[in-house]
């Protein structure tokens, strides 16, 4: 039972990361810098929503309280969301959005690759499905980081500003607590240090090619995994939850 609830919490964290980032990307709909990117960002958002649905379904099963994916996605309070602070940060300019995406994709890809080996069958299945989509996402965000960094003075400056701003939120991607320790001991999830090492390799090589620099400042922000969010989260949820709060249990 203990393990079941640890697994629920673990999967919920992943679901929330996907959903909240998808919501941010959806805000670009109709506002993309060019039509192709407008469609790209919303396509990636759709992939993330699809992954979130599969993950919430699994979480709901593990919890066994009869909640469904919609109730988990739309009917919780802010402190009950366990996403990392990185994904809830505002879109800013295109550089900010793309660097946020790159840091996340570079984390998600090795995580999914490792989770494909998980003995938790449904989690392994979701990972095997999602890994293909995430490879596309990482290719897309990596290429943009390189284009912007190695582009004009203006695009370079904006990309570097985005890194300098977002870096403090990246450490939390590798947050571990008692939940992770318990699941790791049982061989259910991969070691986060391995994921972090792979993330660092990707980030270092792409930023180097982009002529961008990793900030020296090691200031770290965290709290999302425990439900303590930045001031942006409330506004995001007000938008995300509007329909279900105004018309509870509505369906299309």
């Amino acid at each position: 039972m203990m393990e079941q609830s640890a697994l629920f919490e673990y999967v919920l964290r992943m679901s929330d990361d996907s959903l909240i980032l998808a919501q941010r990307l959806g805000e670009w709909c109709g506002h993309g810098p060019i039509l192709e990117e407008d469609i790209a960002l919303t396509n990636i958002s759709l992939d993330l929503i699809g992954q979130a649905i599969s993950l919430y379904d699994l979480a709901a099963d593990l919890e066994g309280k009869g909640r469904n994916h919609d109730q988990l996605a739309y009917m919780r309070y802010e402190q009950e969301y366990k996403n990392v602070l990185l994904v809830e940060q505002p879109n800013g300019d295109f550089a900010m959005t793309m660097l946020r995406q790159f840091f996340f994709d570079a984390f998600r890809l090795p995580l999914y690759e490792a989770l494909m080996q998980s003995p938790v069958e449904q989690l392994a299945a979701i990972a095997a499905k999602s890994v293909k989509e995430t490879r596309y996402h990482l290719k897309h965000s990596s290429e943009w980081v390189i284009r912007m960094g190695d582009g004009t003075d203006e695009s370079h400056k904006r990309a570097q500003d985005a890194i300098d701003h977002l870096w403090r939120y990246t450490h939390e991607l590798f947050y571990v607590d008692a939940i992770d320790h318990a699941l790791l001991a049982d061989g259910k999830i991969p070691n986060m240090e391995t994921i972090q090492a792979k993330w660092m390799t990707t980030v270092t090589s792409i930023l180097q090619e982009a002529t961008l620099e990793i900030p020296k400042n090691n200031w770290k922000f965290e709290g999302g995994r425990e439900g303590r969010h930045s001031e942006h989260m409330g506004y995001l949820l007000a938008d995300l939850q509007y329909m279900q709060r105004a018309y509870p249990n509505m369906e299309w």
Partner: peptide
């Protein structure tokens, strides 16, 4: 089985 995770 879905084509893409989010295929509507």
């Amino acid at each position: 089985t879905p084509t893409y995770s989010g295929c509507p």
